[in-house]
Amino acid sequence: MGVSKTKQPLRKRGGKARSEERRFAFLFVMPALLLVVVFRIVPLIWGFVLSLTDARGVTEGAFIGFDNYAELARDPAFHDSMANTILLIATLPIWIMVPMLLAILIHQGVPGGKFYRAVYFFPATLSSVIVGSIFNVLLRNDGQLNQFLELFGIGAIDWLGNSNTALLSLIAVQLWATFGMSLLIFLAGLSTVPSDMIEAAKLEGASMLQTFWHVIIPTLRPIIEFVAVVTTIGVLTNMFGLIYVLTAGGPGTSTTLPEFLIWIELGRMNRPGYAAAISMVLFVLMAGIAYAQVRIMSRNVNV
C-alpha cells in the first residue's frame, strides 16, 4: 500500500520529472554528440561547400556551382581511379574468404593453430610505410620473389612497375598486411557457434562440407557482413600509405585510387575545391556500399 502512496505524487509531477530526466540524459550524450558534430558533420558540410568553389590553397575560392563535378566527369585520371576502385571491390570476396577459411581451420584445431594465429595477425601491427618498404625490396625486378620464381624457370616480372600487375600486387600486399584482423574477428565469431549445433549436424549425417555450408557459415553471417563492411571501408580509405610508398599511383594511373587522387589534387596540384569534390564522390560511394551492406545485415538480424 505504501508503494502506491509514494507513487501518486510522482505521477502528478510525471511530465516535469521526465523532461528533467531527459535534460539530464542529454548532458551525458552531449560530449560524444559534440565530437561527432565538430569532427564529422561540420567537415562534411564544409567539404561539400568547398567542393562548390575553385579554391586554390591560399586564395578564398569563388563559388562555381557544380563545375568541379562536371570536370570530374571528364577527368580521365578520375575515370581510371574509379575503374581501379571497381576492380578493388571486385576482390572483396577474397578479402573475406581467405581469413574466414583460415579461421575455420584454426578453429578446427590444426596443429600449431595458435602459432599461425599470431603470425597472421603480426602484419596488422606494422605501419603501412614499413610494409611498403619490405615489399618494395621483395617485389623489385631483382627482388626475392623474382629470384624465387626463377627457380621454376619463370622470368622476372616487374610487379610494381608493370601496369598489368601493379594494382594486383598492391592489393595482395594490403591483403597480407590486414587480413589478420579479419581472421581474429572470424575466430571470435566461430567461438560463439554452439558446439552442440555442430554435433547435432554430425548426428544427422551431414558431411564436414555440408556442416560448413548449411550450419557454420549461416551462423557466421552477421560476422561475415561485419567484416565485409569494415574491409570495404578499410580498402577505400586506408591504402594511401601503401600506394605512396610502393607505386605513387603509377605506372600512369594504374594504381591511383580516389583516396590517392584526392591527395594529388590537394597536395600537388593545390586544388582543394577539386579534391573536395572527389572526396564527396568517395563519401557517397562508401555510404552507398555501407548502406547496402547494413541493409543486408538488418534483414538477417532475427536469425
Binding site: 554452439p194 552442440d196 549445433m197 554435433e199 547435432a200 549436424a201 548426428l203 544427422e204 549425417g205 551431414a206 558431411s207 555440408q210 548449411h214 550450419v215 549461416p218 551462423t219 553471417r221 538477417n300 536469425v303
Partner: peptide, 26 residues
C-alpha cells in the same frame, strides 16, 4: 540413434520444417 540436446541445438537460420528435415535433406 537420434539425440535431443539440453540446449535444443536448433539451427537458428532455418524454419521449424527445415530444422526437422535437415538430416533427410543432407
Amino acid at each position: 540413434i537420434a539425440m535431443v540436446f539440453q540446449s535444443y541445438a536448433l539451427y537458428p537460420h532455418m524454419t521449424v520444417a527445415d530444422n526437422m528435415s535437415f538430416g533427410l535433406r543432407m
